[in-house]
């Protein structure tokens, strides 16, 4: 299976892209917004102002290009690595930051956006995505599902079980693997002896594509086509987007222990850089526009950080909220006793 690409490393189109210049400009702006967020979040963590953070540096092209195919009827099933996708699908910046600050009330999307809480155990969200798609199809409801996962997730049983279910029930789901070459310290060749993840689609009887994940125009097209297939009842698609992890796994990780130079860096380049070069060559992007976009992004993020830091510390009551829909009587007693004891102890 050949890796598909539209833009080369210098941003030259190898064939006419499906996205218009205006759509590509909107895409670059979206990528710059989440790159600004990501780099600010990393600084906040280093300053001790939020907790452990999982950066998506280098994945902006995939995340921004993927969610542009989603509508209000659709579902986003992210992992902890996909804060950028969630933000661009409508998660407020403040909600994203509050999540990484360890606030229980966080990652709450607006009512017209179906964004699940980010999945933490690896690959476990894949059967959820298959099940949501199955449920939508069963109820003849509008909407498709987009889920993200990494290369490490493809070694888990839930990857296999979820894709197999999706194939059998022909569910409207886009499975998007961000293959960044690393699962913390373990390189891709240790996850599988197969030449790609995309070829495994054949084993599930579903459509598969191997694309250049650092080519935002390619990702946009591939996801759009997969979404169209899902909407028209043609079933799920497994897309493997090849990219590389520019930063650490999380802020708790020190990649110098296991990674020196990543050859992918030179073969895939940077998604922001590649799209920018393309637009510049087309005369559709200027240094002024770039600065204006970044300035606006920095202001939005700064505003969210200010709101974050103005939030009161979550109350201990929040520990007990939303555990049950129908609370058992002893649970209520336990809460009352716990809070009373805590209050006494803190006086």
């Amino acid at each position: 299976m050949e890796m598909e690409r539209i833009l080369d490393l210098e941003g030259r189109p190898l064939r006419p892209p499906r996205l218009s210049l205006e759509e590509s400009r909107v895409l670059l702006k979206a990528m710059l917004l989440i790159r600004t967020f990501d780099s600010r979040a990393l600084s906040l963590q280093r300053q001790g102002r939020i907790g452990t953070y999982a950066p998506f540096t280098g994945l902006e092209g995939i995340q921004a290009a993927a969610v542009r195919s989603l509508t209000a009827a659709d579902w986003l099933v992210p992992t902890y690595r996909d804060t950028g996708a969630a933000i661009l699908f409508g998660l407020p910046l403040l909600e994203a930051l509050a999540y990484w600050k360890g606030f229980p009330d966080s990652y709450r999307a607006p009512a017209d956006r179906q964004i699940l809480p980010p999945s933490v155990p690896i690959a476990t969200q894949i059967p959820h995505a298959a099940g949501i798609g199955w449920g939508l199809k069963h109820q003849k409801k509008e909407g498709i599902v987009l889920t993200f996962f990494g290369d490490g997730a493809t070694s888990e049983g839930d990857f296999h079980e979820g894709l197999n279910f999706a194939g059998v029930f022909k569910t409207p789901v886009v499975f998007l693997c961000q293959n960044n070459g690393w699962a913390i310290s373990v390189p891709f060749h240790r996850q599988t002896a197969a030449e790609s993840i995309a070829i495994r689609a054949q084993g599930y009887g579903i459509h598969g594509r191997l694309i250049d994940g650092n080519d935002p125009l390619m990702v946009a097209e591939a996801v759009q086509e997969a979404a169209e297939r899902a909407r028209s009842g043609e079933g799920p698609t497994l897309i493997e987007a090849r990219t590389y992890r520019q930063g650490p796994h999380t802020t708790s990780d020190d990649p110098r222990r296991y990674r020196q130079e990543d050859p992918l860096e030179t073969t895939l380049g940077d998604p922001v850089e590649r799209l920018r070069l393309y637009l510049q060559k087309e005369g559709a992007w200027s240094a002024e526009e770039e600065e204006e976009t970044l300035q606006e992004a920095r202001e939005k993020v700064a505003q969210a950080v200010a709101e974050l830091e103005a939030l009161p510390r979550p109350s201990p009551e929040s520990i007990f909220e939303h555990v049950y829909g129908a609370e058992p009587p002893f649970f209520q007693q336990q809460r009352d006793r716990f809070l009373a004891t805590l209050k006494e102890a803190q006086e």
Binding site: W75, L116, T124, I126, P127, H128, A129, A130, G131, I132, G133, W134, G135, L136, H138, Q139, K141, G157, D158, E161, G162, N164, F165, V168
Partner: peptide, 20 residues
């Protein structure tokens, strides 16, 4: 379903989320 307990429960989660 296919013979896969994790996905039976995992997909049931998705079915429930979708309103079933």
């Amino acid at each position: 379903t296919p013979l896969a307990e994790s996905a039976i429960v995992g997909a049931a989660i998705g079915l429930a989320l979708s309103g079933l």
